[in-house]
């Protein structure tokens, strides 16, 4: 459903992402982890067509983002890390704009908008200007817009930041349901508990390179159990692989990850 091949992005001398190969299959909820500045957002921006890769390809639902961007984007729903929307439009006007741009038939758009606004608790504020929304409400509205055209793939950058626990829980439920119905979710997060609780597979990126990919069990196998004998948590794995743990010996990951 999502295929990234040799994905590379350079900004002048800085290589933000290098040779990233990754596939995410239908129905998967894929977590994309990495320290700040590791290249998560750059990767996501290339996936959704905001940035042009220096090298490599992005395929979304079988469509090449470079060769056929309209078709690829039509199958995609995206929520950025800071979903800045048009403050002068009301929530409803933004959804109407989204429906028209994604060519959702009016009847279908009406039904979907009403349903999603209700699910995300925005029905009574849908007529208000977005400028009067809180950050959490904007994020929820962005997610409503991303789901409005019933995409095959959802790409979310830090989807639970700025949300209260209730809204975060709601979004987790919605994403799980989306995957159960055959959708694919690719989400970045730095909250490891969320990745641990939600994701079927996880990829870890560090300094622009994908250093590990696999299920949680596969990743745990990469890290030795803690000194107290307990199984390694995702946090242990993450710190070990990204080299942020003081006690960690330098070690190349092997087996499950894409070779750096």
């Amino acid at each position: 459903m999502i295929r990234l091949t040799g994905l590379t992005k350079r900004f002048g001398d800085l290589t933000a992402v290098e040779g990233l190969d990754l596939s995410v299959t239908r129905g998967e909820l894929f977590g994309f982890l990495g320290p700040n500045g590791a290249g998560k957002t750059t990767t996501i921006r290339m996936m959704v067509g905001l940035l042009r890769p220096t090298a490599g390809q992005v395929h979304i639902a079988g469509r090449d983002m470079a060769a056929d961007p309209i078709a690829a984007k039509a199958r995609l729903g995206y929520v950025p890390d800071e979903p800045v929307l048009y403050d002068k439009l009301s929530g409803l006007e933004f959804l109407q704009l989204t429906a028209d741009v994604y060519r959702v038939p009016a009847e279908r758009a009406r039904a979907r908008a009403a349903e999603l606004l209700d699910i995300f608790g925005l029905s009574d504020r849908a007529g208000d200007p977005i400028g009067a929304y809180s950050r959490g409400m904007r994020r929820r509205l962005a997610l409503v817009a991303a789901l409005l055209h019933e995409p095959e793939v959802l790409v979310l950058d830090e989807p639970t930041s700025a949300l209260d626990p209730k809204a975060a829980r709601l979004i987790k439920d919605v994403l799980r349901d989306f995957c159960r119905r055959g959708g694919t979710v690719f989400m970045s997060t730095h909250i490891l508990e969320i990745a641990e609780a939600m994701c079927s597979r996880v990829g870890i990126i560090d300094r622009g390179r994908l250093i590990a990919v696999g299920t949680l069990d596969e990743l745990r196998a990469l890290a030795e159990p803690g000194g107290d004998g307990r199984a390694a948590s995702l946090e242990d794995v993450f710190l070990r692989l990204t080299g942020d743990e003081e006690a960690v010996e330098p070690e190349e990951p092997s087996g499950t990850g894409t070779p750096p």
Partner: peptide, 29 residues
């Protein structure tokens, strides 16, 4: 005082081409 409009406005959804929808957005903004 906060002025809110009812969700009944969902009925106002119509169909426009992407370019027309973006032009309407531009004018409203």
């Amino acid at each position: 005082p906060r002025r809110r409009r009812a969700v009944a406005q969902v009925r106002r959804f119509g169909s426009a081409s992407p370019a027309l929808a973006m032009a309407r957005k531009e004018a409203l903004v």
